[in-house]
């Protein structure tokens, strides 16, 4: 009986009907989906504005049925600040990779976080520059081979990778900072919860929410999708521990009294 069919899985309404350009095994698609589901579930598609980065996910605006701005490299938090300040009724999120956010955009992310901009930042950390062809990122693991660290990242020259969630959680203003991963189903479910919580915080008017998502880049890591998921679990999580780094909400006025 066709009437009795129960739909248990469908394409999120916040997605366009476009095939993404991502490589096989790349986890951008999963992270996009978690955001799209979140927007659907909260019914906020009509008032959401996304800000795209420069990097592999520069074309994210083709995949979402929401308004979108395309930022210069690293500046998405500044664009998000601008539009959210003048149109506070909007829900504004940025989607940024590690080259974009942790290298060229370090100034913008730290100050947007510290001012407590009421935006949500989804930070995709795959430890490498993807779009430009696999160069060393500020998040590249010690010893990791990239096209600009062919002998492996040399910490005596390049320093150690930057842990953005830890760095930003030293600031008092942000409301919520969590690091998650999407390398297996269990972690995908946790990542969804974190993204939903970040958006929820923003909808409630709370200040600056940040979800770091550990992600794979099989193409530039030189691994199969399966191997890449294992590499992430074996190498990245030890250096980039998963968990909630900050979940406190200081109201402006209360904060002033303390």
């Amino acid at each position: 009986m066709p009437e009795a069919k129960l739909k248990i899985f469908e394409r999120p309404k916040s997605f366009t009907d476009v095939v993404t350009h991502y490589c096989p095994g790349c986890t951008h698609g999963i992270i996009h989906r978690l955001i799209a589901e979140t927007i659907d579930e909260y019914g906020i598609r009509g008032k959401t504005v996304g800000v795209a980065p420069v990097g592999c996910s520069v074309l994210i605006y083709n995949y979402f049925r929401t308004d979108f701005l395309e930022a210069p490299h690293g500046r998405a938090p500044a664009l998000a600040t601008g539009i959210k300040r003048v149109s506070p009724e909007l829900i504004v999120f940025t989607y940024q990779g590690d080259g974009d956010l942790a290298s060229i955009g370090m100034g913008e992310i730290v100050h947007a976080a510290n001012r407590g901009e009421k935006i949500t930042v989804v930070f995709v950390n795959n430890a490498i520059y993807g779009m430009t062809g696999g160069q060393m990122a500020p998040t590249t693991m010690p010893g990791q081979v990239t096209t600009t660290s062919p002998m492996g990242r040399d910490v005596s020259q390049a320093g150690y990778p930057i842990r953005m969630s830890e760095l930003l959680s030293t600031l008092r203003t942000p409301a919520y900072i969590e690091r998650v991963s999407v390398h297996n189903p269990h972690n995908v479910i946790r990542a969804k919860k974190a993204i939903k919580k970040a958006f929820k915080n923003q909808m409630e008017g709370k200040r600056f929410t940040f979800v770091e998502v550990l992600s794979t880049c099989p193409t530039n890591w030189g691994l199969t999708p399966d191997e890449a998921q294992n590499w992430l679990e074996d190498n990245m999580i030890a250096f980039y521990p998963l968990g909630v780094f900050k979940d406190t909400y200081y109201d402006n006025d209360e904060e002033g009294q303390k």
Partner: peptide
């Protein structure tokens, strides 16, 4: 109105970019 003191002129320009996208006078 809205007044934001940014962290740099690089950020100012890009905040204007985002704000200008609202259709308001920035």
């Amino acid at each position: 109105g809205v007044f934001v003191q940014a962290e740099s002129e690089v950020a100012v320009g890009n905040m204007l970019f985002g704000a200008a996208a609202s259709g308001k006078r920035v």
